[in-house]
Design a protein around this nucleic acid. Structure first.
Lengths: 138, 138
DNA sequence: GAATTCCCGACTAAATTAGTCAAGTATGAA
DNA sequence: TTCATACTTGACTAATTTAGTCGGGAATTC
């Protein structure tokens, strides 16, 4: 049960962008250097983040990325989902009527895992980019 | 951020053992069949569970495994740790004084991930095998 | 027109996962 | 005793995922 670099880097970079970029575009190279992240990897991540509407890009000299939404309105859970690092605690919830629903003894654990997932999602949904920047995280 | 089969299977098997085995040894083949789990994989897991003192084994005919502790006293978090599926949300907490502690702007996200890990651990520590068996999980 | 920066797809080495397989040891029942 | 059952253990492996790299292109500004 570990958090991969994709999700970690994406959040680090967006926090950096919210923290240091005040309306003005920040170049990816700058973010990458400050956070010690591989730039070509970051490019991949920001491609998705732009397509999903989290950031906007400016090309050319003095270009870079800006937040497309208010930092207060971006939840950590959204970022992880957008980047392709979803929270998967169960395996049998393929929305088919067949398969376990935690109703029989065989799948007593279903509700356990579902509860864990809900717990995680609730936590990450309750925290915004702005919260992280302003150290309002417990 | 996904839960692997190791942790899932281990908990499923222990719940089965607590649920169906009333003091008497349950053979691994029986558990494996009921839960549709690969038996040779379960063997690996029970090796660790025995070494860590969660189950006791009886060899030979009519042998099998029994819980070595009360089902009320076994926390889900312990099982995951014993089996080698720990909760890892951070990467820079190698207990060295060097490295990030969430104190500088570079690692603003540290407390975020640490908080997530704490949240997960708290949830899984608050639930025992007996809770799962008796459907006391929210 | 040159430098900078984003854009995008293809590729890959290494690690992890999710097991299998084979050979043994201990025990109880017939 | 002998046989079937069941745990014990280590070695091995195919497939997937992770964590990136690489190369070329397109837009923008100085």
């Amino acid at each position: 049960m570990k958090l991969g670099t994709k999700g970690r880097y994406a959040v680090m970079a967006l926090v950096d962008l919210a923290y240091y970029g005040q309306g003005k575009p920040l170049a990816l190279t700058e973010i990458a250097q400050r956070q010690s992240l591989p730039i070509s990897y970051l490019e991949q991540l920001f491609l998705k983040l732009r397509q999903k509407g989290f950031v906007a890009s400016t090309r050319g000299h003095l270009g870079g990325y800006t937040l497309a939404r208010e930092a207060e309105a971006i939840r950590i859970s959204e970022i992880l989902e957008a980047i392709g690092e979803p929270i998967e605690t169960t395996r049998c919830d393929k929305s088919s009527s067949t398969g376990c629903l935690g109703t029989n003894a065989k799948c007593l654990t279903h509700t356990l895992w579902a509860g864990l997932g809900a717990q995680m999602h609730q936590y990450l949904h309750g925290i915004s980019l702005a919260d992280v920047c302003e150290r309002r995280v417990v």
